[in-house]
């Protein structure tokens, strides 16, 4: 089933133009792996960006000097046997289908599928795995919320992207299941509850620590690393 909650235009455009930090991009790219419709929209944004590049005002400097440089670099390469670099021909297409919970690129970031990760307890049956990225603007984690249980009510210091990978959760804005992306900002105070059918595994990207309403939770927040 195709996801029903998609990437907003603004976010997808920023991903297309390269203006989105790595953490956000990871949530966007993982949704894209599960959503043919959004891939089609991405292609349009990239076409628009290509068009912008075509129409950009070129710098006035003569290109002759640059071309001489490049010409030199090329001569080192021509006729030496050149292997096409670029996208690594990854996993063979005829590989038997495997129902990974975590699609690429997310799986590559954590090194294994969900059932092989070292989950750290957050208490009350909830677990997390921190996902390392190269940007300093976001914090990225996988969360596992037990079936039927709520995620403690919280508001957001900034934006929070949540991508469901397994199970589901519901909050005031609707129900989210595999592939669905929730895009929340500081105006949303929500109380997501995991669906009864199974534990909910989701990717959560935030740009600021979550603000929990409970004072006790706020106190332990730094220790839990959330």
């Amino acid at each position: 089933m195709s996801p029903r909650h998609h990437i907003r235009d603004e976010l997808l455009a920023a991903y297309a133009t390269g203006d989105l930090a790595e953490g956000w991009s990871l949530a966007v790219a993982t949704h894209l792996a599960l959503c043919p419709g959004c891939r089609g929209r991405l292609a349009k944004f990239e076409a628009a960006a290509g068009d912008m590049l075509e129409k950009i005002e070129p710098s006035e400097q003569s290109v002759d000097a640059s071309w001489q440089d490049i010409r030199q670099r090329l001569s080192g390469q021509i006729s030496s046997d050149r292997k096409p670099s670029g996208s690594v021909p990854s996993l063979k297409a005829d590989k038997p289908r495997h129902d990974y919970v975590l699609p690429a690129p997310l799986r590559n970031y954590v090194g294994a599928d969900a059932d092989q990760l070292k989950w750290k307890s957050l208490g009350r049956g909830a677990y997390q795995v921190l996902v390392p990225t190269g940007d300093e603007e976001t914090s990225v984690r996988l969360l596992r919320i037990p079936a039927g249980k709520p995620v403690p009510e919280h508001g957001h210091g900034g934006r929070e992207l949540t991508l469901v990978l397994s199970g589901s959760f519901s909050d005031v804005t609707g129900r989210f299941s595999r592939g669905d992306l929730e895009d929340a900002d500081e105006t949303l105070e929500h109380k997501p509850v995991a669906g009864d059918e199974e534990d909910c595994i989701c990717l959560a990207v935030t740009d600021a620590p979550l603000r929990f309403k409970s004072r006790l939770l706020r106190l332990v927040q730094p220790m839990l690393g959330i």
């Binding site: 195709s2 390269g18 930090a21 790595e22 991009s25 990871l26 966007v28 790219a29 993982t30 894209l32 792996a33 599960l34 959503c35 043919p36 891939r39 089609g40 021909p89 990854s90 996993l91 063979k92 297409a93 590989k95 038997p96 289908r97 495997h98 129902d99 990974y100 919970v101 975590l102 699609p103 690429a104 690129p105 997310l106 799986r107 970031y109 990225t133 190269g134 940007d135 592939g179």
Partner: peptide, 19 residues
């Protein structure tokens, strides 16, 4: 920017192809 650009991989077994 010295960052990775996460991208989907059409060859990944979990990739949902166009219908």
């Amino acid at each position: 920017r010295k960052q990775n650009r996460p991208e989907f991989d059409p060859n990944d077994p979990a990739f949902v192809p166009d219908d």
